[in-house]
Design a protein around this nucleic acid. Structure first.
Lengths: 120, 120
DNA sequence: TCGGTATTGTACTTATTGGTTGAATACTAG
DNA sequence: CTAGTATTCAACCAATAAGTACAATACCGA
């Protein structure tokens, strides 16, 4: 594990199966079997995904008889959220730019409409 | 590219070099050469990282003479931020729990201190 | 102790990633 | 047209990732 925490977090999130697993875990502890049911893959594969999430610190495991329930630990997401948050002004900017564009377009339409009317 | 947008975005962010590139781009358009300078790797490697960012929609390229300046497009980050945001209550919860723990600890220290004093 | 259930380990395959080098392309300046 | 500069392409390599199958382990209940 030479990889930094942030890379591990983003890397763990970069797989739809793992994101679905986290979504499921957000509703509470789940066993591997329950977790694997909705997926078209073997238990071992899901177990591997869990290990990835575990190494990223997003999941902790317990023991309940022969079950090893997984539970969510969202703390690494705080750093990820903070990192992305630093860029919020850029996508807000572009939404702002889009706004401007749409307003300008609207203005053109209004102007065109006025012209038509004054021409009639 | 059968991969979904969110996976592509998180995958692109899962590399410290690429995150550094985005950080640099947040200060404005930069050429590949300028971009590569701080890194201990070849221009071709940086060029590849740019292509990854481009396919993720985080970077667009222009043309200025023989330069191909890269600029940031943060819009895919909005979806990523939103996804993570759905889990905010979980890490806030754990921070809340930590708060409780620290408060409890403080309470114990105060109690212990009181005891010492009343014992004197 | 034995059989059943839950999960992981091991070994393997295939695809992708991150990096290299050296040749090719695109453009400018003279 | 040629030389120089910026960037990418192509081929390659080593490491990792995502999946499989099947054996091994861990635990429970009778």
């Amino acid at each position: 594990m030479t990889t930094d925490q942030l890379s591990a977090t983003f890397s763990a999130l970069a797989d739809p199966t793992r994101r679905a697993i986290l979504a499921r875990l957000s509703q509470g502890e789940v066993t591997v079997g329950e977790l694997a049911a909705p997926f078209d893959m073997t238990l071992a594969a899901v177990s591997k995904h869990l290990r990835v999430l575990e190494r990223a610190g997003l999941v902790t495991r317990g023991r309940d008889a022969q079950f090893r329930p997984a539970r969510l630990d969202a703390t690494p997401l705080a750093a990820a959220s903070e990192w992305i948050g630093d860029y919020a002004r850029f996508w807000e900017d572009s939404i702002g730019a889009l706004d401007h564009y749409l307003n300008a377009l609207q203005q053109i339409r209004i102007t065109a409409h006025d012209k038509e009317n004054t021409h009639g």
